[in-house]
Computed example of a mutant assay.
Amino acid sequence: MLRAVKRLGLPLLIAAAGAAAAAPACDKPVYLTFDTGHMGVAPLVAQVLQRQHVKVTFFLADERTLENGSSLDEHWAPWWRERAAEGHAFGSHTWDHVIWRGDQGAAFRMQPTAGAQSGQRLTLDEAAYCEELKKPARRFEAMTGHKMLPLFRAPGGKTSPALLAAAQRCGFTHVGWAPAGFLGDELDSGKFPNDKLLAKALHDIRGGDILLAHLGIWSRQDPWAPAVLEPLIEGLKQRGFCFATLRDHPQYAALAAGR
């Protein structure tokens, strides 16, 4: 070891060790992501991630919660601080969870599912949409002292080339998910019970896939998390997969390094 220090030089050795620590622990990483929701399963999700030593990426919107508050209010601020301290990564999901419904000239037809205008059809120009992306980032930094990644996920994954270009000019790159990474927690639990969703995910997921789940879905009667989450993590580990945040994803690592 001492000869290695002399040969490489201590600064280079420290840098190499740091790079090794930051890299995924295997050659089959998957990237588990969570969008906000009603937050009812958020404490249980956090317990599973802690127990399994898994880091994920969260996409934040200010959505209505089971307590009739919102996912980025003061009630949830300590929860987000804890997740930031644990080393998870974070991106924007728009402030009012605005769903793209179409382009309208240089503007966008949108429908929020949160906030005072929930359910209404709105037209947002580029500046207004940029504010939708930036507001969660400002709130997250105010709550945690940490910065978000310059990444966002459009609610429902609904976008257009014009919307993506506007987001890029605002400093945000869109992140979708792999087809096999759709974990099904938004689906009807009668038609898609947890055991079938688990079996499908374990069969279909491949290395490099971005996986999508939520911190609470109003419409699902039998919650997906934590019932599927921990068996899924354990099953993927047994198949030789490891878990990484989008900071380590080859498509987004350079963007993350700039923050």
Results as ranks from 00 to 15, higher is better:
residue 85 A to M: 01
residue 189 S to Q: 03
residue 244 A to N: 01
residue 98 V to R: 02
residue 136 P to W: 06
residue 251 Q to N: 14
residue 134 K to Y: 12
residue 46 A to M: 10
residue 8 L to F: 08
residue 94 T to N: 07
residue 61 A to E: 02
residue 212 L to G: 04
residue 253 A to V: 13
residue 227 A to V: 15
residue 190 G to D: 11
residue 20 A to Q: 02
residue 150 P to F: 03
residue 237 K to E: 13
residue 130 C to W: 13
residue 153 R to L: 07
residue 205 I to G: 05
residue 219 S to G: 13
residue 73 D to S: 06
residue 3 R to F: 15
residue 227 A to E: 08
residue 98 V to G: 03
residue 174 H to W: 01
residue 258 G to C: 13
residue 123 T to D: 09
residue 212 L to K: 06
residue 128 A to Y: 05
residue 74 E to W: 03
residue 251 Q to K: 08
residue 217 I to Y: 10
residue 40 G to M: 00
residue 54 V to F: 01
residue 106 A to T: 12
residue 189 S to I: 07
residue 28 K to T: 05
residue 85 A to F: 08
residue 64 R to L: 15
residue 212 L to P: 01
residue 29 P to A: 06
residue 120 Q to K: 05
residue 111 Q to Y: 02
residue 120 Q to S: 13
residue 130 C to D: 10
residue 138 R to K: 09
residue 195 D to R: 02
residue 246 L to M: 00
residue 20 A to L: 14
residue 118 S to A: 15
residue 212 L to R: 03
residue 247 R to L: 07
residue 52 Q to E: 04
residue 195 D to C: 10
residue 205 I to H: 14
residue 156 G to D: 11
residue 174 H to A: 14
residue 211 L to K: 00
residue 187 L to Y: 14
residue 132 E to A: 15
residue 174 H to N: 02
residue 144 T to C: 04
residue 136 P to D: 08
residue 188 D to I: 11
residue 199 A to Q: 13
residue 13 L to A: 11
residue 258 G to P: 01
residue 221 Q to V: 06
residue 135 K to H: 15
residue 88 H to N: 11
residue 84 A to P: 08
residue 165 A to S: 04
residue 41 V to A: 02
residue 185 D to H: 13
residue 52 Q to Y: 03
residue 30 V to K: 00
residue 127 A to V: 02
residue 224 W to E: 12
residue 248 D to V: 01
residue 199 A to F: 10
residue 210 I to R: 05
residue 130 C to P: 07
residue 30 V to C: 09
residue 115 G to S: 01
residue 12 L to N: 06
residue 114 A to E: 10
residue 160 S to D: 06
residue 45 V to D: 00
residue 195 D to F: 14
residue 25 A to T: 13
residue 214 H to C: 09
residue 244 A to G: 07
residue 15 A to W: 13
residue 119 G to W: 03
residue 94 T to W: 01
residue 248 D to P: 01
residue 38 H to N: 06
residue 48 V to H: 05
residue 145 G to W: 04
residue 244 A to Q: 01
residue 222 D to M: 07
residue 65 T to P: 14
residue 144 T to S: 10
residue 176 G to C: 06
residue 29 P to Y: 06
residue 143 M to V: 00
residue 127 A to W: 09
residue 4 A to L: 13
residue 57 T to F: 05
residue 149 L to K: 03
residue 196 K to C: 11
residue 75 H to M: 06
residue 110 M to C: 08
residue 256 A to M: 09
residue 17 A to L: 10
residue 70 S to L: 07
residue 61 A to Q: 14
residue 86 E to K: 10
residue 256 A to H: 02
residue 122 L to M: 15
residue 201 A to I: 08
